[in-house]
Design a protein around this nucleic acid. Structure first.
Lengths: 201, 201
DNA sequence: CCATCTTATTGACACTTCGCCAATAGTGCT
DNA sequence: AGCACTATTGGCGAAGTGTCAATAAGATGG
């Protein structure tokens, strides 16, 4: 039952060890809220003394921040793809791509955007806010208004990203909406914003 | 420096004591995330032994649940007011009322919907979900679709409530949008949903 | 192949917070 | 005044976290 590897101390390159601990932490924080994950759990599953976790990541919150950063970098790269065509097509494309990414990494993504038990903390909020900002910029680019957008426009787009996040959570956690319905809701909402709200400001 | 009242033990009716502790807890949880509030803080500010907090509310999470429940009951009653007129008027009315309530109780309300550091917890999520459900029902009633709504319709309306919450946070915390702009965004979004998404399903 | 040096890793200590419970002491009643 | 009820206290034990000197794994040089 006891792993043979744990019988003897094993020395790894700092980068490798850090990566290993991080992956274990991702698995834990992705499946249970912040308060229910102890650094002892992470250390045990990594086959490592608890002190080493602090040595590499500092405090527990710092470890969580590293985890959230990894979880949120996935959606960011997804928005780099720029579609062509008229507005409805581009909106369809960006919404579809968003739903693809979200459904593929559902558990970790839900945990990250839900800020599994650390919402309200200043640093965590900032990391999430930055990711939302990147997503909002991607949306603006997709609808053809990405060139030097005003702060107001960017703020409104952040609100739309909030709608997308909420709707995705509603979709994946409750399971009463179909993907088509979610897609329709997000697409028509975005079109309405672009046509009837953004131009005024 | 030392309060005279604390020199001598003071005996209160259970209801009164519970109410007093709860109000102190609301003030603390409303201004700081969950993890940064200790039951010792609450007990000290209430002029009471820490054990008494547990005696009245059980665990710390239970205390937080009681706080969130109080914070979220305010918006609920606000949605009971039913306006008359055509769709744009009714939408304007419900959005305006929502923004009134939110801005009036901004700090506590933001802390509650942001789940100040306890998101991901099952019980906390359920309390918030119930409040969102009530709000969604109010929105459906306001737009004249409140009679026996389908689960799909209710789910979509929960998404809209999510947009409203998110936008309100953007408005009150970042301060880049004006109230008029927030109002316009939420009103036209709701109208678009009612006219172009809800009918299909 | 052994001695030495670097540093990744450990284990324990101090501190904080939380839930629990027997002991204590207000407060009304006789 | 004395008594009974129970609101309230204070301390104990468990769990978690951050820190740091001590340890040993593995590379390096002779």
């Amino acid at each position: 039952m006891v792993r043979v590897e744990s019988m003897r101390r094993r020395r790894l390159e700092p980068d490798a060890r850090r990566e290993q601990i991080l992956s274990v932490a991702i698995r834990h924080f992705g499946s249970r809220p912040y308060a229910e994950v102890s650094t002892t759990d992470v250390a045990r599953d990594a086959g490592v003394a608890r002190g080493l976790v602090n040595h590499y990541f500092g405090t527990k919150k710092d470890l969580y921040l590293a985890v959230v950063r990894v979880m949120l970098t996935v959606p960011e790269v997804a928005l780099e793809q720029l579609p062509d065509g008229d507005l409805p097509e581009r909106v369809d494309s960006i919404v579809g791509y968003f739903l693809d990414v979200v459904s593929r990494h559902s558990t970790s993504w839900l945990a990250a955007t839900g800020a599994g038990g650390m919402a309200g903390d200043a640093e965590v909020n900032q990391v999430i806010a930055e990711a939302v900002d990147v997503a909002a910029a991607g949306v603006l680019r997709a609808v053809g208004m990405g060139d030097d957008p005003s702060p107001v426009l960017r703020a409104m787009c952040r609100s739309y990203v909030g709608l997308a996040i909420w709707t995705a959570q509603e979709w994946l956690q409750r399971g009463v909406l179909t993907r088509q319905q979610v897609h329709a809701l997000l697409a028509t909402s975005l079109i309405a914003l672009v046509e009837r709200v953004f131009p005024v400001h």
